[in-house]
Write a protein that binds this DNA or RNA. Structure first.
Lengths: 204, 204
DNA sequence: ATTGACATGTGACAGGTTGTCATATATACT
DNA sequence: AGTATATATGACAACCTGTCACATGTCAAT
């Protein structure tokens, strides 16, 4: 978390700094990020930067956290609008996510942030996991389980976690080649169908 | 790929260098790796290092590639022994992978390599994808599709890719906390069951 | 208005990094 | 022995990060 000083800053300056950080994250993968570029761009001194943030990781973590929070809010809202059908909901959410990524115009930023989240198994995982947990909780509380074969807590967790895995894989593939977005969406829909009805023929 | 010079080296020296690289990858996440530490450890000069490898990425990529190749070979072998039942096969493969990771004694190395593969969406992805493609191909050629509802090529791809997503998620979770390995294994088995039979009750 | 306490701004700096290159040495071949 | 080719080396430029002593702002109380 940034130091208090950062939050005391006049909004204009805070925004300017964050803009510079976003610009830098968009420019290169996280491990190549240069504080020098950021402070030059934001027109602040080196010393100031370290008065706002503990270190490089701190600023990256903060921006990452913020981005994930946004995504999460959008996901939760989409789900609320889906009347409890998880399977339908995740399709809508995927489409929304695709559009959000494309519309934002800054694919590199989203891509590098996504990589960051995936990378940071130890450090950021806490917030990523919390984020997932939070979403899972809302899903569990609001989803319609009447049609499920297994209704116990564990089974629902298994199901949701599985859907999330596939969701994440799909998003990664979309980032890898944005031109395949539509194909990947269709694939996701087919995979959800498999989960719903099973891959194996019932023995008559 | 390392330069020719590296492969011309006497095996003892080559091994010594690779050992030093493995040691360094085990020590810290990929983005914190220090060439200085490696050359000091391997007792070679800075200049020599750059005569063997193009740059830092080159050596990491090489070691990563090698590791993935090993895993792939083990997976393919496990599958060959499973008589075409993909669902059973992936369970055996997961167990084998778990044991391989634990037995290797060097969890940090595996963990950091895994992160590297996940991270490197652009760079290493080619080989990771090739690796997956290669496995997929062997699966497709050898699997028993008689019990599947959908037997066309696309449907089989969807199914396998989906299983892989869940597999990867499970492995990641096992790395995150090795003590949960057994629980994650059980969860994986349950998830495979869902894929086989579906999550939704048939309407009678 | 002056003082002092505290918040914020600054750039030079130490100590680290990577990749290069001219030069030195070893090996192989005529 | 002499030359060509392959390998070894550490000093080096050009970057990097995080720190710190000091400069400047801000604001409340005297």
């Amino acid at each position: 978390m940034p130091k208090e000083t950062f939050f005391n800053l006049p909004e204009e300056k805070r925004e300017r700094i964050l803009m510079a950080v976003v610009k830098e994250i968009s420019r290169v993968p996280i491990d190549k990020i240069s504080i020098n570029k950021i402070i030059h761009d934001a027109e602040i001194s080196r010393g100031s930067f370290y008065q706002y943030f503990i270190d490089k990781d701190d600023v990256i973590k903060y921006v990452t956290y913020d981005y994930i929070k946004n995504i999460r809010e959008r996901v939760v809202e989409s789900f609320r609008a889906s009347e409890g059908d998880v399977f339908k909901a995740v399709e809508i959410i995927l489409r929304g996510t695709m559009e959000y990524i494309i519309k934002s115009g800054n694919i590199n930023f989203s891509k590098n942030i996504l990589i960051q989240v995936k990378t940071d198994v130890e450090k950021t995982i806490a917030l990523a996991v919390n984020s997932t947990d939070c979403i899972l909780k809302i899903f569990k509380e609001n989803m319609d389980i009447s049609k499920l074969k297994e209704k116990n807590n564990e089974a629902i967790d298994d199901l949701l976690q599985m859907i999330f895995s596939i969701f994440k894989e799909t998003v990664t593939r979309i980032f890898y080649d944005i031109n395949n977005a539509e194909l990947e969406y269709e694939r996701f829909v087919r995979q959800i169908e498999i989960i719903k009805w099973g891959a194996i023929k019932e023995i008559k």
